[in-house]
């Protein structure tokens, strides 16, 4: 399964996942607490410095790509505040949003899925009486396993459709794909039972 962890190995990869997440939580809290454009600007410089310092240019460019969904919002906010002639407030909003998302993405890009799952298992320990950690891990594994299976099924259905129709299936595929998910759920439940159940 493709994850958002960066293949560019940075020193940040070697830090403990729990520590990174804790630092991120504090940093994000501070960003939403302050209303000073200067402080937020320094925050952004700090995050940008971490991207460049830890991973170099290629890594930083990848980080910039992950911010792409933000640009429409940045544009809207910028235009809005331009119109209101309140640029300082606009700068605060944009800086806070970009910095918070960039910092969070940085943790995602430098933390392996397995390390994240370990942290999650720790966090979920108090829930153990309702949600045994093994069952949570099993649920996560099942989703990762069945995303490619289900999308393969969707592709097969689309081909079967195209084999008998000149037009693309579009939404008509959703019903059969949902049925495939339901059927798979039944057979997987059986396979799970065959190997001792979900405990």
């Amino acid at each position: 399964m493709l994850t958002l962890t960066s293949p560019v190995e940075t020193p940040l990869h070697r830090l403990r996942a729990g520590g990174k997440l804790g630092a991120l939580a504090l940093f994000t809290f501070a960003l939403f607490w302050t209303h000073s454009a200067l402080v937020l600007g320094l925050g952004l410089i700090l995050v940008a410095g971490l991207y460049l310092g830890a991973g170099g240019l290629r890594f930083a460019r990848h980080g910039l790509q992950m911010l792409r969904p933000l640009w429409p919002f940045v544009a809207v906010v910028a235009l809005w505040h331009l119109w209101l002639e309140d640029l300082a407030m606009g700068a605060v909003v944009v800086l806070r949003m970009v910095t918070a998302v960039a910092a969070a993405n940085l943790v995602t890009m430098t933390t392996r899925l397995s390390d994240m799952i370990t942290v999650l298992e720790g966090l979920a320990r108090p829930l153990a009486p309702v949600l045994p950690p093994r069952r949570l891990a099993l649920a996560i594994a099942l989703v990762i396993r069945f995303i490619p299976v289900l999308s393969g099924r969707a592709e097969q259905l689309a081909q079967a459709w195209r084999a008998r129709s000149g037009r693309p299936p579009r939404w008509r595929l959703f019903g059969p794909v949902a049925l495939a998910a339901l059927d798979d759920a039944e057979t997987v439940a059986e396979a799970l039972r065959a190997r001792g159940g979900a405990g």
Binding site: A141, L142, R145, D184, T187, V188, E190, A191, A194, R195
Partner: peptide, 14 residues
């Protein structure tokens, strides 16, 4: 032990 006909119905893990 049970070996199902379709491996995709048996393999549970990524």
């Amino acid at each position: 032990g049970i070996l199902f006909q379709n491996p995709d119905h048996q393999i549970l893990f990524p």
